[in-house]
Simulated scan of single mutants.
Amino acid sequence: MAPLIRTQFGLNDTQIGLLQGPAFSTLYAFGLLGAGHFIAGRNPYRVAAACVIVWTAGAVLFALAPDYPSMLAARVALGLGQAAFVPAALMLLTAQDDAGRRARALSTFTTGSATGRSAALVLGGAALAMVAGRAVAGLEPWRAACLALALPNLVLIALLVWSGRGHETVVREPGQGLGDAFRLLGRRWRVFAPLLIIGACAVLMIQATAAWSPSILNRSFSLTPAQAALVAGAVALSFAPLGHLGGGWTLGSPVGRRFGAGPLLAAGMALALVSVVALASARGLPMAAAGLAGLTVGGGFTAVIALIEVQALTQPRLRPQVGAVYLAFVSLIGVGLGPLLTGIVSDHGGTGHGALTWAIAAVVSVAAIVGAGVALAFAGRRALDASV
């Protein structure tokens, strides 16, 4: 949708980056912290259903926004609505005592999230292709597509309400607040800080790629917005599960137990670095698609391993709270800065269709090098491994 929105409202890449990044992530991050504090002792299914209602309203407001400030406000509402969903899900998923099952559950959850974003690109592209530039019920094609993509949320709300029937709410115990999570992170900062940095770098790579890949394909290879969304969505839909599921399964495999999390995290970053170089130097669509595929796998592989290690290093009673703090941090850095920095570099780093491609190459390369360096620095003494 970004190319159409950019054209209609006369926006530059920085403004699009602000719309996709900080407008969503700022209130989302603070909402995560609040949800992490209050989620204990509440029915997670009902909390999740309420979140979906709010973010659906934000999606509708975005689709009907008359101007850029209204779109920013809608993105803020969307972020607030999604904020408590993740802590509610973590409360259910991290109750597993077995480390292997917990890792697989978390990787499956993050796979579902990535698959949903990818499917939205594919469905959005298909909707744009179907209307072929024609207005739908008096709405521009991108507005109609956004509204159509919000409809499945109604089914999700019904499923969450139905699933929450009869669910016993666990009484909140002392020591389950946000302050307790911060105290744990402070006491063990030498272990958690590297994972926070690595996770932020991984999410920054993922979000920068997801936000700008349709625009790169549109500008560099003369694809229509519909075609660009379909190709970008198909690549992400095909390879995002490989990264997320692969990370969870590899960490719990004999390979993961032998080498530990540090080398695996560095390997994911290395794959992303090689892939973004391939994307930046691509002369044809197949090579660009291969670069996007590698970025998708490397980013997802790294992000899920960092999340699994954070949860494994945390006492069960504090996992939703520590998870909320972790996700708030990586969201502020990764979601907030990834799309925005790419837009700023694109606007000020040159002209022509290749400016955006080199901008994402620069941003992702820095994130990958920093993340890999931190992972390798701690790999020798296995400081990132929950099993040690």
Results as ranks from 00 to 15, higher is better:
N218P: 12
L295D: 04
R102V: 08
L156P: 00
G291S: 06
S118L: 03
G247Y: 09
G349K: 06
L292H: 01
L376I: 14
T224I: 14
T314L: 08
V122W: 07
F30T: 11
L78Y: 00
A210S: 10
A84C: 12
A306F: 07
A289I: 01
R42K: 13
G36F: 01
S113Y: 09
F221V: 11
A293H: 04
S220K: 07
L18K: 03
F30A: 03
A119G: 15
L237V: 09
A77H: 00
A261M: 08
F109G: 00
A135V: 09
A120D: 11
A144E: 02
L195C: 02
R219Y: 12
S107Y: 06
G36L: 01
R319K: 15
A29C: 09
A59P: 00
G323L: 05
V161M: 07
G112Q: 07
H167I: 02
S213V: 09
L11E: 07
A270T: 10
V131R: 08
F109N: 01
A234L: 14
S253Q: 08
G260M: 09
L92S: 07
G124V: 13
Q8S: 12
G199S: 09
R257G: 12
S275R: 02
T115G: 13
V366G: 02
A49W: 02
V322Q: 03
R258T: 14
L106V: 12
I53K: 06
A290W: 05
G350M: 08
P263K: 01
M91N: 04
L292N: 04
S365V: 10
A135N: 15
A379G: 13
G233D: 12
R283W: 15
G31N: 04
H348E: 10
L78N: 02
R75K: 11
L156C: 12
D385P: 04
L195I: 06
T111E: 03
G248V: 11
N218A: 14
P286A: 14
